[in-house]
Design a protein around this nucleic acid. Structure first.
Lengths: 173, 173, 173, 173
DNA sequence: TATGAATGAGTATTCATTCAT
DNA sequence: GATGAATGAATACTCATTCAT
């Protein structure tokens, strides 16, 4: 990735995440990145190509965040780690997440399959912990995580320490 | 609201919800509604005005759905009613919700204030039921509402009866 | 056809004929026609649509020119009339013809079928006049038509009266 | 001419001839030639420069084809040779001719002067053969040749042997 | 109220060309 | 000689909006 490519991707990420993909023109991206508009197309062939390039990095990052959970044996530790994920997202990554959450509502970009392994790991954990309906527990747990993540990304005021403690207690971790 | 106005609003709702506000041109709306493009502007003065008109109806509908909860005295009944809300949304209303959820991610249209009364009612209920941190419980409960509503709207397969039963049990209702 | 539509078609014809279809931008057409660029697309949906609209008129004009030949019974009169066709094209129509001749070299727009009725009429005439290979004679005659028309359109100096007389004599008319 | 130069010229010729000069981008030429776009400009300084380079070769080829005619003393042989020219064009050269014929309709590239020596040779021949208006005969003859060439290049079905025989007979050769 | 012609600014994308390497 | 990154201007086409009727 050349220096200018990085600039393009960075500018596009910020704009796509905050103003929306459709509301962001390639000329805006170019201006913000300080490059000519044509360069975007030389490197990514289309606006959508650019989006896909960004999404790949984003999904890679997500995988990276959730991988430690997938391999965790101890169910309590697993849940604890899962709860921690949203709180560990750094501000620098918020744009990634914002974009991801937005695109979840565009059919073409929403693939719930992606989270299946996590869901399965959670189900396993709830099974081991003797929950009656572990699959539903996992689903609900994921709703919670999603909600927490969304709130954090939107920078709604939450006492992170207290809330995390609350979650731990709720699941007796 | 004249007959043509209704056609416009209906067409716009479907398109805004499914293709996105920015991705929907006023000409597409006009064509789908079977009216001239000019008429949209005579009635709503701008594309954004049209969106706002739709949003008002949408928000009114939401209020309508949650009002029974606000006045419910019995905390257990209240939670039961709250759990049920997302399952009561009819398919005909999905577009409303889809649009609402999408716009939650556009700063200009996300106002968390809207849900405050519900949040307070839930907090009250959890207090009455003796939960240790009722405000956090209420927050979490709202995440459930969001999550299940999103899943239903996206028509992800969920055994509605079973899941509802699971929620009842979870909250001992 | 509104007044502006006519302006568009006229401007486009001149430009397409003299600078070439591909070398003429829609913005140039708009500027020359004194209308907004968008209007072209409202009326003709695409640059190609505009070309096709023009071509239809052009082909209609051609038909009109050759129709008297098709119905002529007397073979000598028929050939005389045919010889005259190119000389009857008025300067005002040169652009039509220029465009037509240019497009003959674009596969998509060359349809030799168009001239078939004329070719058949010519063949009939040569048959009646006792020519040995009337079909070839007709083909050759068409080459003359093409050649003289091209020369006239390009405004190459030709003594029209003399040349016509020469042709009459050549075919003993 | 280096190997890459040849590749460029060959690719450009095919594309210019079949898709048109304006419709062919330098990037298409580069891709087809398997070279970098920059190289085209190093060698030919501009797209037009490339066209001119091609045209020079094309015109040289034409001269080569017609030279034997210019020096022919026997008028009958001369006409026979002239008739043969279009039939002798090899398929491999069709692109050359297609391009030439197309460009005849671009003022900048049409120079009727080029064919003057041929026209004069034909006139001489017709004079020697005692035709009444040899200059007009020559002009008409050229129209015929042009028409034949165009038909052949466009690969319209023509019985070449029969048609050539027909031409010989027509001019009593 | 409703239409449809009309517009000016913008859209994604392509173009011929330059230049550092 | 040759590449590939980079650009500024252009391209066909769309957009939200206005206005005369």
């Amino acid at each position: 990735m050349t220096e200018k490519q990085e600039k393009i991707v960075k500018a596009a990420l910020t704009l796509f995440a905050n103003e929306g993909y459709n509301a962001t023109s390639t000329s805006k991206v170019a201006k913000k990145a300080g490059v000519s508009e044509g360069l975007i197309f030389r490197h990514y062939s289309s606006k959508e190509g650019l989006l896909e390039a960004i999404m790949q990095t984003a999904e890679a990052r997500i995988e990276q965040l959730f991988t430690p959970i997938l391999w965790e044996k101890d169910p309590k530790v697993l849940l604890r780690k899962a709860i921690n994920v949203p709180f560990e997202v750094e501000k620098a990554e918020f744009d990634f997440w914002k974009l991801l959450f937005k695109l979840k509502w565009e059919k073409a970009y929403d693939n719930p399959e992606k989270m299946k392994p996590v869901l399965e790991a959670l189900t396993r954990a709830f099974t081991q912990l003797g929950y009656a309906t572990p699959a539903y527990e996992a689903t609900l747990f994921e709703f919670y995580l999603d909600g927490i993540a969304a709130a954090l990304i939107k920078e709604q005021v939450i006492d992170q320490v207290a809330f995390r403690a609350f979650m731990y207690k709720k699941y007796q971790l």
